[in-house]
């Protein structure tokens, strides 16, 4: 995964609370391999409504999604993040996010940016008034839509992961010896925690 620090693109507004993972990607699409591309599954069933905001001509090519409270609540399905990333999004802005969704997002280069409800509402109204060009800077924690600027604070660990495009598996290899030591000590200290069949 390649990291990113600054981004300039266009924002689209989906002013709904509680857009859950079952809506972001309905379960029936999740058996596809990732290489199939998950973009077309994004919010699939909601998009059956004519006039769905993401399908408006002005929303084509948008890369920043502004939504409502508790975005990505529900299941641990990382496919919800794949759908957003494959559809070209690199950030979602909302007043709050589901915990597992945020973690999954950061693992795939998608920034879950939290702003206050008032700020998010302002973004929605500006986008609906026709302003959509957005600039994001992860390092500075700043975001601007048109001429309005906002500050956000992302967990520093997440910021770093997004910027570096870090992959935890690579990182953890540096701890291989520490893990092995822990494992060895644990087998004695908590022998009962290791699964056994039959009497010891």
């Amino acid at each position: 995964m390649t990291g990113w620090t600054v981004h300039s693109g266009r924002a689209v507004s989906l002013p709904l609370d509680g857009v859950d993972t079952d809506q972001i990607i309905p379960a029936r699409f999740m058996s596809q391999p990732r290489s199939a591309g998950y973009g077309e599954f994004l919010l699939h069933d909601m998009r059956q409504d004519p006039g769905f905001p993401l399908d408006a001509p002005a929303a084509q090519g948008a890369s920043v999604l502004v939504s409502g409270r508790n975005f990505g609540s529900g299941s641990s399905r990382e496919a919800a993040v794949y759908a957003l990333v494959d559809a070209g999004f690199c950030a979602v802005i909302a007043p709050s996010f589901g915990d597992i969704f945020s973690a999954n997002a950061v693992n795939n280069g998608l920034a879950p940016i939290q702003l206050s409800k008032a700020e998010v509402d302002l973004l929605h109204s500006q986008i609906s008034a026709g302003t959509s060009s957005v600039d994001l800077d992860l390092e500075a924690g700043s975001l601007s839509l048109g001429r309005t600027s906002f500050e956000f604070s992302l967990d520093p660990v997440w910021t770093q992961k997004l910027i570096e495009g870090w992959d935890d598996i690579d990182l953890t290899h540096a701890w291989t010896a520490t893990i092995a030591e822990f494992r060895k000590a644990d087998r004695t200290a908590r022998d009962w925690a290791w699964p056994k069949c039959g009497p010891d």
Binding site: S76, R77, E78, V81, I100, N104, V157, T172
Partner: peptide, 20 residues
């Protein structure tokens, strides 16, 4: 606790997980 696919891959490969 529940985890996403990237984290599942990490646990499979290392039997560990990073968590705050």
């Amino acid at each position: 606790f529940g985890i996403g696919a990237t984290e599942v891959a990490h646990v499979l490969a290392t039997q560990t997980i990073w968590q705050k």
